[in-house]
């Protein structure tokens, strides 16, 4: 017990016990509030998903995946849309990931800390918050007209790559920063160069975080509608882009990059805006499938993160 009378009463065992039970109640209250908030979020997602699935239930057939768009709702499918979305995602990933990861490595491992890199950092963070339609306008001017890519898969992929670049950069930097400095020191101490430290240690140990960031970025991109409408995606399309695989050498073709396209969110938007209620269930089904694709990608991200965390725990 303290000699100080001002605090002596606070140290009385009975008071301590009473105070403790009050603090524990607060503790419990927070657990319940947190749990409720989380359940509300989950419930909203679940309701949305179930609603979409119910509305579109009669459209979940094989034909829905293999048919092109049609004026008759029951014959319309999402073939062009999901192929388009997949190809766009490939272009987006191939462009955004290497550039984003390289930028993050530069900012974290190489760049000196001065006003210039500080400005770059602030800008990267701000870019993540720029409305996607602005990226669409930029891409319309830059990719479609300036680079003359036209209303193609390449233009759409590049647009979305631009859009998710800040997300990839921020996530990668976060992952790189989570590699303890002690590991870098150990490698430098053995005589490694900066690039050796990066490629042998920093990158392998942050792969989980980088892949997670990449998939979160792609999950954002897959649902984006505004920017690709801005650059002029078609909403009614009855043919597929050129196949990426060919029967003769070199078996891979990039002709599809220049082809016009449509994408899942655009197909949905198109159907939703039609008066015929039959199209509403098409839209719902497409929405459920898009949501499923996103959840699948997120699931992969979580799985990857789990696997890497299990292997590396600092």
């Amino acid at each position: 017990m303290s000699d100080n009378p001002a605090i002596a009463t606070f140290l009385d065992p009975k008071l301590v016990r009473d105070g403790l039970s009050r603090r524990k109640v607060l503790d419990q209250v927070f657990v319940i509030v947190g749990l409720l908030v989380m359940l509300v979020c989950l419930a909203i997602l679940a309701v949305l998903f179930i609603d979409l699935v119910r509305d579109g239930s009669e459209r979940f057939t094989w034909d829905f995946f293999t048919n092109f768009a049609s004026r008759r709702a029951e014959r319309a499918g999402i073939l062009a849309a999901w192929v388009g979305t997949t190809l766009i995602m490939i272009v987006t990933a191939v462009c955004a990931v290497p550039v984003g990861v390289a930028a993050a490595i530069y900012l974290e491992e190489y760049a000196p800390k001065n006003w210039f890199t500080a400005i770059i950092e602030i800008n990267v963070t701000n870019l993540a918050g720029v409305p996607s339609i602005v990226y669409g306008l930029l891409a319309l001017g830059l990719f479609v007209y300036q680079f003359d890519l036209g209303q193609s898969i390449a233009a759409a992929g590049l647009t979305l790559a631009l859009l998710i670049l800040p997300i990839v950069i921020v996530a990668t930097r976060e992952a790189i920063r989570s590699v303890p400095n002690a590991i870098r020191e150990a490698a430098y101490g053995l005589g490694a160069t900066r690039w050796e430290v990066t490629k042998d240690h920093v990158l392998p140990y942050s792969t989980g975080g980088i892949l997670t960031g990449m998939i979160l970025g792609l999950s954002r991109a897959i649902g984006e509608t505004a920017p690709i409408i801005t650059i002029g995606a078609l909403s009614f399309i009855a043919f597929l882009p050129e196949s990426p695989f060919t029967s003769e050498f070199p078996f891979i073709s990039f002709g599809w990059l220049n082809d016009p396209f449509t994408a899942m969110p655009i197909q949905m938007f198109n159907w939703v805006s039609r008066p015929d209620p039959a199209f509403q269930s098409n839209a719902a089904a497409a929405g459920a499938i898009l949501l499923g694709m996103t959840l699948l990608m997120n699931g992969v991200a979580i799985w990857i993160r789990y696997r890497y965390r299990k292997k590396i725990n600092w």
Binding site: I183, Y188, G191, K311
Partner: peptide, 17 residues
């Protein structure tokens, strides 16, 4: 070059994962 000739052991064990 200096670090290749002079080894170091740190305060906290820091093996690579």
């Amino acid at each position: 070059e200096v670090r290749m000739r002079i080894g170091m052991v740190f305060q906290k064990p820091n093996p690579f994962p």
